[in-house]
Design a protein around this nucleic acid. Structure first.
Lengths: 185, 185
DNA sequence: TATAAACATGTAATTTATTACATGTAATAA
DNA sequence: TTATTACATGTAATAAATTACATGTTTATA
């Protein structure tokens, strides 16, 4: 009997979730981390490809090869019945404590004690730029994908996380602007 | 010549930052992750103690032992001049792209496509509880530590990150409540 | 005065994630 | 038509982080 609680391996479940509806190649999965889910998780191809092989060994996914063009072999993956069960179990598991944000911008701030240190303003300005760019991208995506309530309902989860990301970025930007105003006073 | 860019090792700089003003033991540092900085980074003692030894080898910190009680040896660490320079360099480095939130609550949501799946409401309720508890803790800390503007100025960075965490939790809770209302419509 | 909780420090094994190394095809634009 | 970009897939080395194993002291409390 093994009561060992291993580390999460969230990537495993993300892959299963992504394969729920469509068959995908490793490259497809890699690209999806550039879109909305990239705001909530990221993985490099060097982690994705081995994970796919592991999942196939565990019989949670299956694969077949298709030739694209003259000789390029693309490996498509499909979720199995067992895989679907594993995914649903994960979805039903109670949530753990909220993990830390791992935000080193905030940490840097924490270690600058002098309110008049000019680096504070610089940091805020840099950070604001990043969040402005992100918010811009996210709002564009939102109008692209979910202009109508029908479209929202058809991909409800997707709609939700996009909305959440936008709210997060806006709150962050508000805070950044407020603090920048305080500094200049 | 080595142009290799290694992974960050943020813990290293957090330790240096924490030692900037006070000498601390490994245990002290461990405990600090239970407070505000725990919202932005966390580390187990099994990572902290080896890191402290590494930093001492690199001459970024120094240590001395004090006896507590009859025979308990406590190792206190101090930052060196080199350590201080290293810390300041980190603080001055331009910020990277904002990293993903690694939020598996949101990911789970993403993979529940059916708007009527009862698991959605459950997930939201679980998550709301967590964030309510956290917000509670944070606001208590805020009044404990920063009731006056003098106190805010004296530890400006600390004040800032506490404020940021509170704003984040509030925004999150607002979103959770909004969505819970939408579900019940 | 026993005992539980908090203090205090460490290592080993393992998992997770990143960077670097490595190779080749297909489509597009100049 | 050539060059560049995107497509496509992998492994090796390394770093970062977690879990588990391990031991002992001091303080508070029942």
């Amino acid at each position: 009997m093994d009561f060992t609680i291993w580390q999460k391996n969230t990537l495993k479940f993300i892959i299963l979730g992504l394969l729920k509806h469509n068959e995908l190649t490793g490259y497809d999965i890699k690209k999806l981390f550039n879109c909305e889910i990239g705001d909530f998780w990221q993985a490099k191809h060097s982690q994705i490809y081995p994970e796919l092989k592991k999942l196939e060994e565990e019989k949670l996914i299956s694969s077949h090869i298709e030739i694209s063009g003259k000789k390029l072999e693309k490996t498509f993956y499909n979720i199995t019945a067992t895989g679907l069960t594993t995914l649903n179990n994960w979805l039903t598991e109670p949530q753990d404590k909220i993990p830390p944000t791992r935000d080193d911008f905030t940490l840097k701030l924490y270690f600058i004690d002098d309110k008049n240190n000019p680096r504070i303003e610089e940091l805020f300005a840099e950070e604001r730029l990043q969040h402005e760019e992100k918010l811009n991208y996210l709002t564009t995506r939102m109008t692209e994908l979910f202009s109508s309530t029908e479209k929202q309902k058809a991909h409800y989860g997707h709609y939700l996380i996009l909305k959440k990301a936008i709210i997060r970025e806006k709150a962050q930007l508000n805070w950044l602007n407020d603090e920048l105003n305080n500094i200049n006073k």
